[in-house]
């Protein structure tokens, strides 16, 4: 194999690697958008269903489903994923989550935080 041939192989090889990985990155983005859309729809349906139950719906067994009352908080902070941080910076929130995990002896991966709010 000549130097020119090896250069050509290398160039084509790099193009192949970039092409495959760029294609994958677009597919991941596409997948995230589609799945995000599906999940949002599902969450909306779940929320609507919970709201219906909250207003006096009965389950098949005849028990009233009681859901916790969520205070009407104005979202003045910013959000990261599904966790809302209100007046709390990211590092403090991470520290709080680590402390809760440590104190409760529950691994962080099994805890789900909905909101961390600073109380004056």
């Amino acid at each position: 194999m000549t130097l020119m041939d090896s250069l050509m192989v290398s160039l084509i090889g790099l193009v192949v690697v970039f092409s495959v990985l760029i294609l994958l990155s677009f597919l991941i983005k596409f997948q995230s958008v589609v799945l995000g859309y599906i999940m949002t729809d599902k969450n909306k349906l779940d929320a609507a269903s919970a709201k219906g139950k909250d207003t006096g719906d009965f389950t098949a067994e005849g028990e009233t489903v009681v859901t916790a009352e969520v205070p009407n908080i104005v979202d003045e902070g910013w959000s990261t994923g599904e966790l809302r941080l209100l007046g709390v910076d990211e590092k403090t929130a991470a520290m709080i989550m680590a402390i809760v995990s440590h104190e409760s002896q529950i691994p962080l991966s099994e805890l789900q935080f909905k909101m961390i709010k600073a109380i004056n």
Partner: peptide
């Protein structure tokens, strides 16, 4: 997903 571009660029050494 743009991390994949970096994963591709870091294969440069293979071809050199």
């Amino acid at each position: 997903p743009s991390s994949l571009f970096l994963g591709a660029a870091a294969q440069l050494g293979i071809y050199i």
